[in-house]
């Protein structure tokens, strides 16, 4: 009996010790994805969790000088790369900016397809002149959180849901990101379009009242409100208008909570 207790106590000590080692950003609920050193810096890549999915994924970077001390004014860039063997392409990104609250460079990558036999993803992180490539595995999101479509204006767009911390019954903030594909590797944000959002529960066939269509707020962001009258599977139908004419009216993203 005593042995079991001392064993358990020992384990507890070890775990407690492990926790402490990781302390800093892990305290803020972040998971360390990878770490590298170069140019006298230690660069650590963090995320909210290590299960990346097709859709909107936040990434965080901490940069520390090897002689000690945090570097707050570095220029950090993300470049996702999908390597399909014969060809490579990128995907939309929100480039990181330093967040003084959690002392991390905070950005996001919108993965448009999952890792598969067809190809694999890498995330290139550049800190000033230093570059490091981290392989990342992207799973297929259970619910469709990102959609790529060609509008009537012959432009290829990427529309992505920025999920809140938690969806809940009632009125939720709805945030969308819209980018266009200028080339295989360039995805500039698109502002100033009109997006109409209509929620629906596909299994029930009903919608919800009092939704507020997302409006463009800059950098490709569109914010509005969506009313979920119950938990379950919701589908957000979008109609997108540019200069008064509909460029896409039958695309959707899904929410499950």
């Amino acid at each position: 009996m005593n042995r079991i207790f001392s064993c358990a106590f020992l384990c507890a000590l070890i775990f407690a010790g492990c926790k402490k080692e990781n302390a800093k950003p892990a305290e803020a609920g972040k998971v360390r994805i990878a770490q590298t050193t170069g140019n006298n810096m230690t660069i650590t890549l963090w995320a909210d969790n290590d299960a990346f999915i097709t859709g909107y994924n936040k990434f965080y970077v901490s940069v520390n000088a090897n002689e000690g001390g945090e570097i707050k004014n570095a220029k950090v860039r993300f470049t996702p790369v999908m390597d399909m063997g014969t060809m490579k392409h990128s995907s939309p990104v929100e480039q990181p900016a330093y967040n003084t609250l959690n002392k991390l460079y905070e950005g996001a990558v919108i993965f448009t397809m999952p890792t598969s036999e067809m190809g694999s993803w890498q995330l290139k992180v550049a800190v000033n002149d230093f570059e490091e490539i981290f392989p990342v595995t992207i799973g297929n999101s259970v619910k469709k959180q990102v959609v790529t479509f060609k509008g009537n204006d012959d432009i290829k767009y990427v529309l992505c849901l920025v999920p809140p911390v938690k969806w809940q019954v009632g009125l939720n903030d709805l945030q969308l990101l819209l980018h266009r594909q200028a080339s295989a590797n360039e995805f500039p944000p698109v502002d100033g379009l009109v997006i109409e959002c209509t929620p629906e529960m596909p299994s029930m066939g009903h919608g919800s009242p009092n939704n507020i269509n997302p409006v463009s707020t800059g950098n490709g962001h569109y914010t509005g409100k969506v009313n979920f009258t119950m938990t379950g599977e919701w589908r957000l139908h979008f109609a997108i208008k540019k200069e008064g004419s509909v460029i896409k009216d039958d695309t959707f993203l899904d929410v499950l909570f």
Binding site: V169, S203, M204, T229, M230, T231, G232, E233
Partner: peptide, 13 residues
């Protein structure tokens, strides 16, 4: 109310 549609997530309100 909790609804249990076939092949979809339960819905609660």
């Amino acid at each position: 109310m909790t609804m249990y549609p076939e092949g979809a997530a339960p819905m609660f309100m």
